[in-house]
C-alpha cells in the first residue's frame, strides 16, 4: 500500500472502532511517515475529548430568560388544556342531547306506528 492510500483511511481508523486490515497495519508498522500521521490524529482526538470539560460561560441573564420562557410555555399549555377540557365537555353535552333527542323521536315514531296499524281482530 502507498502512504496516500493509508493516510486516506486514518481518520476512520484512529478511534479503533473499525479494525484496520493487515495491509494497512503492516504499512504503518514499517512507515515512519504514516506513524507520525496516525500520532497526529490520535493527538487531535485526545484534544477534542478534552474540550468536553472546557465550558463556555453563558451570556448573563440567559438562564433567567430560559426559565421565563419555560414558565410562559407551561402557562400556555395549562390554558390549552383547560380550553380543550371545556371543548370536550361541550362536545359531550351536545352529543348527549343529540342521542336523547334521537331516542325520543324513535320512541314517538314507534308509538304512532303501533296506533296506526290495523288490528288482527278487525281484519278477520
Amino acid at each position: 500500500m502507498r502512504c496516500d492510500e493509508v493516510a486516506a483511511l486514518l481518520p476512520t481508523l484512529v478511534d479503533g472502532t473499525v479494525p484496520p486490515n493487515l495491509a494497512v497495519e503492516h504499512h504503518v508498522e514499517s512507515c515512519l511517515r504514516c506513524q507520525a500521521e496516525l500520532a497526529r490524529y490520535r493527538r487531535l482526538l485526545r484534544t477534542l475529548q478534552q474540550l468536553r470539560t472546557r465550558y463556555i460561560e453563558p451570556t448573563p441573564g440567559l438562564l433567567g430568560e430560559t426559565l421565563a420562557a419555560l414558565e410562559e410555555a407551561a402557562e400556555r399549555r395549562a390554558v390549552r388544556s383547560i380550553l380543550s377540557g371545556r371543548r370536550l365537555k361541550y362536545a359531550g353535552a351536545i352529543g348527549g342531547t343529540a342521542v336523547a333527542t334521537a331516542a325520543t323521536a324513535a320512541l314517538l315514531i314507534a308509538r304512532s306506528r303501533r296506533r296506526g296499524a290495523p288490528s288482527l281482530s278487525l281484519a278477520s
Binding site: 465550558y55 426559565l67 414558565e71
Partner: peptide, 18 residues
Amino acid sequence: DRAAFDELVRQTFVDTFT
C-alpha cells in the same frame, strides 16, 4: 413539578449552553 424542572435546568445549563 416546574420547580424541579427549573432545578434540572440550572444544574445542566452551562453544559447545554457549551
